[in-house]
């Protein structure tokens, strides 16, 4: 089940990778079903619907029932992948995620599509930059934010193999395939170090990872050795990797999410409880203006320049 081909200039829409992977998994596991809320196209599940029409449940525009039906299908022996825009599957159905999925501890996979500011122009109602903060409160719900097409495919496979509730935050933003050593694997709860470094550590996930790698290259040219960690799993965190990051003396987190309670908050909770070092949390401050995702990233410093600046400033605060 290879990831889908790049759309243009070597960039990928990770939803294609999600769709290809779920179709391939469904071929060999008849328990796999998909659940949508009129979100077939936006989830790129048209192919799944064509191949397995009886295994796609469309509840209409009804997110509470969308999530609850996932819980019911799991009770009936299915492995449901429940897929809708991240802003709605989380915010609109938050109590169903809490009670029916997490607290009931059922084998349901929630797929938050077009997360972050993918719908930048549509404004904060459609931005999903609060989703991780909301979901991080449910301690048994695994949270995965893949960074590229390969990792999206691996995350979907890992979610299917794991017996319990998982949320995968899928991006529609164009991202490159990351360079990895041959034989790289994905495991829920394990971070990957993409660039070695000793002066500071950038911990990123999702669409921010390739930007963090670019920032590290800029810094390297100045003689600053910045480690880059792809922290794809936000729950549970890879605390060993965070401990190692703290040993570099400065940590900068970067996420396509609010600075309140997301990856940065999660990392900070570990850092202050173990080995406090200067930290900087990069993300969006709260509701952000309407604008394209590219404009929003640039405006809020979520780009190569902004990340490099944050690293320099955080290193300057080292004790």
């Amino acid at each position: 089940m290879s990831a889908a081909a790049p759309s243009k200039a070597g960039l990928f829409d990770c939803r294609d990778s999600f769709a290809a992977t779920i179709e391939a998994l469904a071929e060999s596991d008849s328990r796999i079903v998909t659940v949508v809320s009129d979100s077939v196209g936006s989830s790129k599940l048209g192919g799944f619907k064509k191949k397995f029409p009886e295994r796609m449940v469309n509840v209409g525009i009804a997110e509470q029932t969308l999530v609850a039906v996932g819980a019911g299908l799991a009770n009936g022996g299915k492995v449901p992948f429940v897929s809708a825009a991240s802003c709605f599957i989380t915010g609109r159905a938050l109590e169903q995620v809490k009670a029916d999925i997490a607290y009931s501890n059922v084998n349901v996979k929630l797929i938050g599509q077009s997360s972050g500011v993918a719908y930048g122009e549509l404004g904060p109602t459609h931005h999903s930059i609060e989703d991780l903060a909301w979901l991080r409160l449910f301690n048994n719900l695994k949270l995965i934010v893949p960074a590229d097409p390969w990792q999206t495919a691996e995350a979907i496979k890992a979610a299917a193999a794991y017996d319990g509730p998982v949320f995968v935050r899928v991006s529609r933003m164009a991202v490159p395939a990351l360079d990895r050593p041959a034989g790289a694997t994905f495991e829920i709860g394990k971070a990957e170090t993409l660039v070695e470094g000793s002066d500071a550590t950038i911990i990123a996930n999702g669409t921010m990872v390739h930007r963090a790698v670019a920032a590290a290259k800029t810094l390297a040219a100045e003689g600053i050795s910045a480690r880059v960690v792809n922290m794809a799993t936000v729950n549970p965190l890879d605390e060993a990797v965070i401990a190692a990051a703290a040993e570099t003396g400065a940590i900068i987190t970067v996420e396509e999410h609010s600075v309140r309670g997301g990856l940065g908050g999660a990392v900070a909770e570990v850092v202050i409880s173990t080995n406090p070092v200067p930290m900087r949390i990069l993300g969006f401050p709260g509701f952000v203006p309407t604008g394209s995702a590219a404009w929003l990233f640039d405006n809020f410093g979520l780009n190569e320049t902004g990340i490099a600046d944050a690293v320099r400033q955080t290193i300057a605060r080292k004790r």
């Binding site: 029932t65 609850a68 039906v69 819980a71 019911g72 449901p80 169903q96 029916d100």
Partner: peptide
């Protein structure tokens, strides 16, 4: 809504 999913 959960019972609906079981029935489906």
């Amino acid at each position: 809504p959960v019972a609906l999913g079981i029935a489906i």
